[in-house]
Each structure stands twice: as structure tokens, then as C-alpha cells.
Amino acid sequence: MVGPAAAPRSSSTSRWGRSPVEKGRVLVLRPGGPGGPREPAAVGARIGRFRILEQLGQGGMGVVYRAMEENLGREVALKVIAPLFAHDPEFRERFTREARAQASLESAHVVAVYAHGEEDGYLYIASQLIPGGDLGQLIRSQGVPSLVEALEIIEQVSSGLADAHDAGLVHRDIKPGTCSYAGGPARCVPISPTSASPAG
């Protein structure tokens, strides 16, 4: 059993209720309401059938991990929703509705959603893991793409947005950080419930 570990001191905190944890550890929340006990857990912790391998990022809505879906033996991007949202009935209803719509969406330019639900008290969405990170990371590490490459990326992302719109979803948070690109097809990442709205 993984015991609690001290988090590094920092002057900033997040909606998760603590500062970002030290490198090499991931942030996992104990089940409970907002403001309840929270603790970091070592790599290898489990949320249902998912075993956490590393933390990929943290945002206002939650934490994204690289995880192993052990019953299928595949790696996924596992987003665990922050309790501030996860315990909001209205948010949960919208999250479930939009996650179902995304899971049914088939597009070469939208990251595939494999599963969503609640395991061990954690609300999550598991999606296709794209090696290489997002477009924003690529630009920061390698500089801006050539004009030809930029136009290709724009065309592919636009195709993904059109497919999402046809499925009844409108992405309202398109930016380099929400697009994946690793030398292959550019893809929109799954649409968070707070960054999407029904297509009219």
C-alpha cells in the first residue's frame, strides 16, 4: 500500500488543493468531497483497471497521466477530474453526455476516447495516447513549423473540428496545447466538458 508522501513547498496552489508534486511522483486524490484529504501517490498506483505510469500534465480541470489499461495491455492518456468538478451533479451529467458523444466519434484527426466513468471514486476519461506530446510542446522545443507544414496542420485540425461538429460537439478551446502532433496526422484532443458546447 502506498503511504502519504510530503509535497514540495511552493507559494502557489491549484484547484487540487496542493502545490504540484515533486518530479517522479504523481498526484492522486483519495475519494471524497472537495476539500477532503489529498495525497500524492507513487507511480504504480491504480485507479480501477488503470495503473499510473507517469504524470503528463495538470490543468484547471484535473491531472492527465500516462497509464496502463491492464485488462487490455495498452497505454492510454488518463484524465482524472478534480473533485471540485467531479462532485458537481450538473458537471457530472454534462461530462457523461459529452464523453459518450466523443467515444462514438470516429475521426483521423480527433484523439480517440476509449472509456469514461468512475473507478474507486475517481471520475475519469481514458483516451488514445499520442507519443510526442502536444503541438505547443513541439513549438517550444523545435520552433515554429514551416509554412507548408503549418498549413497541413491547420487543414487536419479543421477536419477534426468538422467531424466533431457533425457529431454534435463544438470545441471552444482550440490552441497548440489542445492539439497533438508527432510527425503524423494532427489531432484535436478530447473536448473537456467545460470547453465544449452542443452544436446548433
Rank of each mutant, 00 (worst) to 15 (best):
P20T: 06
A162E: 13
C188R: 01
Q137E: 14
A82T: 11
Q156F: 09
L84H: 10
T96H: 10
T96W: 04
E70L: 08
E39T: 13
S10K: 13
A199E: 12
V157Q: 00
A186K: 05
R94K: 14
I139F: 13
A167E: 14
W16T: 08
R100M: 10
S141G: 05
Y124T: 02
P37S: 11
A86C: 09
R49E: 15
A196Q: 06
G48P: 07
Q55E: 15
P37I: 08
P4A: 14
D88S: 05
E70F: 07
S141Y: 05
L56N: 02
G143N: 09
S11L: 14
A167H: 15
E69L: 11
L53S: 10
S127K: 01
V2P: 08
I47C: 07
E70I: 06
V76S: 01
W16M: 12
A167G: 07
L123T: 04
I139R: 13
G32Y: 05
A103G: 02
L84P: 00
P40Q: 07
A115P: 02
G168P: 02
V28T: 07
A41G: 14
S192T: 00
R187H: 07
Q55W: 04
L138P: 00
P145V: 07
P176W: 06
S14F: 08
V144A: 13
E54A: 15
E119M: 11
A182D: 15
A167T: 05
R92Y: 02
Y65C: 04
V63S: 00
E90G: 03
R51E: 15
S12R: 11
P176V: 03
D120Y: 08
L84W: 09
H87F: 05
P37T: 10
P193K: 02
G62W: 01
I174H: 09
P198N: 05
A99Y: 04
Q55M: 12
R187A: 10
L138N: 10
S158T: 15
T13Y: 13
S107A: 04
G17C: 02
E155L: 14
A42C: 09
F85R: 02
M1K: 11
F50P: 06
L123Q: 04
H116T: 06
P176M: 06
E119P: 09
M68Y: 09
R97F: 12
S11I: 12
V170C: 07
E106R: 15
E118A: 02
L29R: 14
R30A: 12
G177W: 01
G24R: 13
S159V: 12
P8E: 12
